[in-house]
Amino acid sequence: MKLTLALAQISTRLGDVRANLEKHLVLANEARQSGADLILFPELSLTGYVLQDLAATVAVSSKFDTQLFDPLREVSRYLDLVVGFVEEDRRRRFYIASAYLSKGEVVFVHRKVYLPTYGLFDEGRFFASGNSIRAFETRFGRVGMLICEDFWHISPPYLLWLDGAELFLFSSASPGRGISTDSRLASSTWVTEVNRAYARLFTTFVAHANRVGFEDGLNFWGGSTVFDPDGGLLIQAPDFDENLALCELDLNQIRRTRARLPLLRDEKPELLLQELGRILHER
């Protein structure tokens, strides 16, 4: 099976959900006309990233019964979408979340588990962290979604792998940092190399949509990528500039790679569980 994936490497307006929604609809239509089956937007694509006290203002209820999600649901009749937003649950907790929409429905929501609260980051001050990591079924097979810091930790991609995800959809609003003699920022190199490593280690497709633009002095570096299950780079959007990058994924590649390299077959989660139990007990 073939999947044409669009990476929407966009800049956003900080706290202006209406303007960002408009951009989503324009790009989703453009992607659809170019033959895309699925469009992946970056982290907090509907709201902007450094929200601080805007978090409560831009939040959307977990029922998704708002005017905001109606047009997104409508577009999802024609192509699947992953969008980033702030979700508010019944207990008035705010989450950084990604929604997968398809055939007019919100199919799955991932709440960001790891909230960086160090250095330039302050997410833990404003957001609650998600408490589950699960793969889910789509019309393209089993998919796993993670948001930025989630995949700076190795366990969330590992769990998605064991849960059967064959396509990882990662989204970020990654601030660029670490200038040196290299042609890319240290943060760009780190994320790109780690995504390639996940593709290889887990023999999955790994797609990453990162935003661009600035918020005050923070730059977002873009450089969105798709790696195939062998770690081959299928597409890389340019650093720093907006881009709608389309890429065809041959999903049969997973079967071929895993026939050659049965890492998932040979993985020993029971051993992991046993040793984790021991480590947690001894600690």
Partner: peptide
């Protein structure tokens, strides 16, 4: 403290343009 001046220039030009 050597830096890639092409990269610095690229970011700073976008910063000035965007933020203004």
């Amino acid at each position: 403290l050597t830096l890639n001046t092409d990269l610095a220039r690229k970011i700073l030009i976008r910063f000035i343009r965007t933020e203004i």
